[in-house]
Computed example of a mutant assay.
Amino acid sequence: MLEISIRENDEFIKLGQAMKKAGLVDSGVDAKMVILDGQVTVNGQTELQRGKKLHDGDVFSYNGETVKVVK
Score class of each variant (00 low, 15 high):
residue 70 V to G: 07
residue 38 G to I: 05
residue 35 I to V: 15
residue 6 I to H: 00
residue 50 R to M: 12
residue 28 G to N: 03
residue 7 R to M: 09
residue 30 D to Q: 08
residue 35 I to T: 06
residue 37 D to C: 04
residue 11 E to Y: 03
residue 63 N to M: 02
residue 68 K to A: 10
residue 15 L to G: 07
residue 45 Q to F: 13
residue 32 K to C: 02
residue 2 L to M: 14
residue 50 R to A: 15
residue 42 V to Q: 05
residue 27 S to Y: 00
residue 67 V to I: 13
residue 21 K to W: 05
residue 2 L to Q: 14
residue 59 V to D: 01
residue 14 K to N: 12
residue 44 G to W: 08
residue 62 Y to V: 02
residue 54 L to Y: 05
residue 52 K to N: 09
residue 61 S to M: 04
residue 17 Q to E: 14
residue 65 E to K: 12
residue 36 L to H: 14
residue 64 G to C: 08
residue 15 L to S: 07
residue 1 M to H: 10
residue 31 A to Y: 02
residue 7 R to S: 15
residue 39 Q to C: 10
residue 26 D to W: 00
residue 67 V to G: 14
residue 23 G to V: 04
residue 67 V to Q: 07
residue 59 V to L: 05
residue 28 G to M: 03
residue 47 E to H: 04
residue 46 T to Q: 13
residue 71 K to P: 11
residue 38 G to R: 00
residue 16 G to R: 06
residue 19 M to E: 02
residue 19 M to L: 15
residue 16 G to Q: 07
residue 57 G to A: 04
residue 54 L to P: 03
residue 59 V to P: 02
residue 50 R to C: 12
residue 2 L to T: 10
residue 55 H to K: 15
residue 17 Q to V: 14
residue 45 Q to W: 11
residue 63 N to K: 10
residue 4 I to H: 02
residue 5 S to I: 10
residue 71 K to A: 12
residue 66 T to P: 02
residue 14 K to P: 00
residue 26 D to K: 15
residue 2 L to A: 05
residue 37 D to A: 14
residue 44 G to Y: 03
residue 52 K to V: 12
residue 71 K to S: 13
residue 38 G to P: 02
residue 36 L to A: 14
residue 26 D to N: 12
residue 24 L to H: 07
residue 9 N to E: 15
residue 17 Q to D: 13
residue 8 E to Y: 08
residue 50 R to V: 15
residue 63 N to G: 13
residue 58 D to S: 03
residue 64 G to S: 09
residue 47 E to A: 08
residue 68 K to N: 06
residue 37 D to Y: 07
residue 19 M to I: 03
residue 8 E to P: 11
residue 60 F to V: 07
residue 71 K to E: 12
residue 5 S to Q: 10
residue 19 M to G: 00
residue 29 V to W: 13
residue 51 G to V: 09
residue 5 S to M: 00
residue 21 K to C: 01
